[in-house]
């Protein structure tokens, strides 16, 4: 395996006005450090793909961005993560509101064991985003529409969400995240449990969502990263090795490790 000098990876291209940034982010699970000095900018209304071998810290980094790591015992985080220039780890930040602004879609579809309607309506309800039943209906419909699920479920909104297929459930989870109008949507391998057709639908959806939302997606599929993202960040052993325009990363990676990973020599 090629060894590259440390200095080559510290210089990361910053962007002009990022939606979110990570600065010198270090994270440990107890004594086990999972992220080392990560510096990364997320561009507004773009899809940023996080790639890298298993266990390199992609999910960990993603969870830092909406403070889901707070719920894990024994996590220590150093460094700074900002949303619109404000540190989200600041004491004055309300985590609940933050998570409403930064939605998340998980690797395994995890609908609530409630009706399809209630799944999508849950977020708007708890955040008090609606004043009337009609408004709520409206939000549920548009969210399902945006997630490309409305056609399939409009006749069974009151049936249990757990009765949907895996791919439908995942799109329901996306609809549920979209329903609270987040600014950023974090997706952790959203297609890993889906077949190629369902995957294609979700990818299409991500591409559409890009016009309204900032998206960060973790994926193990190089093709998927190439298809849906505008920027790609490559992680390795807890470090951010390289980040740049997706085209550039895939056609002309600067780092040996990136090249090795995307050409399938290690991973």
């Amino acid at each position: 395996m090629a060894v590259v000098s440390q200095s080559a990876m510290t210089a990361q291209p910053s962007v002009a006005s990022p939606k979110m940034t990570a600065r010198d982010l270090n994270l440990s699970y107890g004594d086990n450090q999972a992220l080392f000095d990560v510096n990364l900018d997320i561009v507004e209304r773009q899809v940023t793909a996080l790639i890298g071998p298993s266990g390199c810290g992609k999910s960990t980094f993603l969870r830092c961005m909406n403070r889901m790591n707070d719920t894990i015992d024994g996590v220590t985080i150093k460094g700074e993560v900002t949303l619109d220039g404000r540190d989200i780890y600041d004491k004055r930040i309300d985590v609940v509101q933050l998570r409403a602004r930064i939605g998340m879609v998980f690797q395994k579809p995890n609908p609530f064991p409630k009706t399809i309607y209630d799944n999508v309506a849950y977020g708007p309800r708890i955040h008090g985003l609606v004043n009337s039943r009609d408004e709520l209906d409206q939000i549920v419909m548009t969210s399902l529409e945006r997630a490309g699920l409305l056609k399939e479920v409009k006749d069974r909104l009151q049936s249990p969400a757990t009765g949907l297929s895996g791919g439908q459930q995942q799109r329901l989870c996306i609809a549920r995240a979209v329903a609270v109008s987040p600014e950023v949507i974090l997706m952790d391998e959203p297609c890993s449990a889906l077949d190629p057709i369902a995957t294609a639908k979700v990818e299409e959806l991500i591409d559409e969502l890009r016009s309204n939302y900032t998206i960060v997606i973790v994926t193990h599929s190089m093709q998927q990263a190439a298809r849906v993202s505008q920027r790609t960040a490559f992680f390795h052993l807890g470090k951010l090795v390289e980040v740049g325009e997706t085209d550039q990363i895939f056609t002309n990676p600067k780092d040996e490790r990136t090249k090795g990973y995307i050409t399938g020599r290690f991973g």
Binding site: M68, T71, R99, A100, G103, M104, F106, N110
Partner: peptide, 23 residues
Amino acid sequence: VPPSIRQAALGLGASPVQTVTHH
């Protein structure tokens, strides 16, 4: 109760108490 349910609720911005009482 599967942890994924708690994550789903927390990820939507439910407070810990809401997560417990609602789900």
